[in-house]
């Protein structure tokens, strides 16, 4: 079924970003970029979301929250790491309190570069993640929807 591609619901979480990427994520919803054209909705609720869009690096305090949000999302799901910090820790990677990119904690499917990441790049990243979402959905269906959920690596 191709409905995942047509109705991706998104959950945005700011791990420890400087806000630059976050306001660009929000900008994607607004008239100039208008991602609702693709059926994308920013749900704000992990239980309703298909795509976890994370900005910012992980630190000790939000590590658990990132894991939690990911765990609460029902399968199939994908993770998009938006911005330099989410990819690797960015300019903050040397700091004592930053663990590194999102992939230190949960598996990431799409990396979107930029500091701050541009809205066009975010949209591109989300659209690319849809193909992965679709593949995961097909796989889930093949296993009869009863297989083991993916384990975070």
């Amino acid at each position: 079924m191709a409905f995942f591609k047509k109705s991706p619901w998104l959950l945005h979480y700011d791990a420890s970003s400087c806000n630059g990427c976050d306001i660009e994520v929000l900008a994607c919803l607004t008239p100039i970029y208008d991602v609702e054209r693709f059926g994308i909705v920013n749900t704000g609720n992990p239980k309703h979301a298909d795509i976890l869009l994370i900005t910012g690096a992980v630190n000790v305090q939000n590590e658990e929250i990132v894991r939690n949000l990911y765990g609460q999302m029902p399968d199939p799901k994908v993770v998009v790491a938006a911005g330099a910090c989410a990819m690797s820790g960015g300019v903050f990677q040397d700091s004592y309190n930053v663990l590194g990119g999102i992939d230190k904690v949960i598996p990431v499917d799409v990396y979107v570069p930029g500091c701050a990441v541009r809205p066009e790049a975010i949209i591109d990243g989300v659209v690319q993640s849809l193909a992965i979402l679709e593949r995961k959905a097909a796989e889930l269906k093949r296993r009869g929807g009863s297989g083991e959920p993916e384990k975070p690596s």
Binding site: V60, Q61, Y96, N97, V98, L99
Partner: peptide, 9 residues
């Protein structure tokens, strides 16, 4: 107040 990776950095 903060939870830090390192005590009293």
């Amino acid at each position: 107040f903060y939870r830090l990776a390192k005590k009293n950095p």
